[in-house]
């Protein structure tokens, strides 16, 4: 796993959360896992293609998702409505898009898929079995967890 790419995804997610929320966010820890997994209620998956392949998974519990979505939309959340889900998916897309931009500008060709968001699905097993770095990010609204599961094709 290319650690500079992993760092780019974690850093960009932290930056975007800070930019959007206007409050302090922090990476509490980082840990390696054998496979990607996500067990919280709201899961966004973005696929990566190019010289590196894999997925970035961002998962959070429903209460955090509703609070984040409510802040982004300026509306009181009443469950994970389509607009709330879209706001979480777009937040993930902005975070991963910023990292993709940096990685491409540094010479590695990499593209991303549009985000897919799942709610109440408790995705415990993932079809791509790559070594995964997991980083919980603390925000004022709760924890946002990013899992980077990538494989270098070169």
């Amino acid at each position: 796993m290319r650690l500079e790419f992993v760092k780019a995804f974690v850093n960009s997610t932290t930056e975007i959360l800070g930019d959007l929320l206007g409050s302090e966010v922090a990476v509490r820890s980082m840990a390696m896992q054998a496979n990607p997994s996500a067990d919280r209620e709201v899961i966004t998956i973005i696929g990566l293609m190019g010289e590196v392949q894999g997925d970035v998974i961002i998962d959070l519990d429903q209460e955090t998702a509703e609070q984040l979505g409510g802040f982004l939309t300026g509306e009181v959340a009443h469950g994970m409505t389509p607009l709330m889900k879209s706001s979480i998916a777009e937040m993930a897309s902005m975070a991963i898009g910023r990292a993709i931009s940096q990685i491409n500008d540094n010479g590695t060709r990499l593209t991303m898929t549009p985000p897919n968001i799942f709610t109440e699905s408790h995705l415990r097993h993932h079809d791509k079995q790559f070594e995964t770095l997991v980083a919980p990010i603390t925000t004022a609204y709760g924890e946002v967890r990013i899992s980077v599961a990538i494989q270098d094709l070169n």
Binding site: E90, G97, R98, I100, S101, D105, M112
Partner: peptide, 21 residues
């Protein structure tokens, strides 16, 4: 959300007038 140099150039080549990340 994706704004690397090559993509921005491609957008301007296609006729876009401005690019906002």
């Amino acid at each position: 959300s994706v704004a690397y140099k090559e993509m921005v150039e491609e957008a301007f080549d296609a006729g876009a007038k401005y690019f906002i990340p």
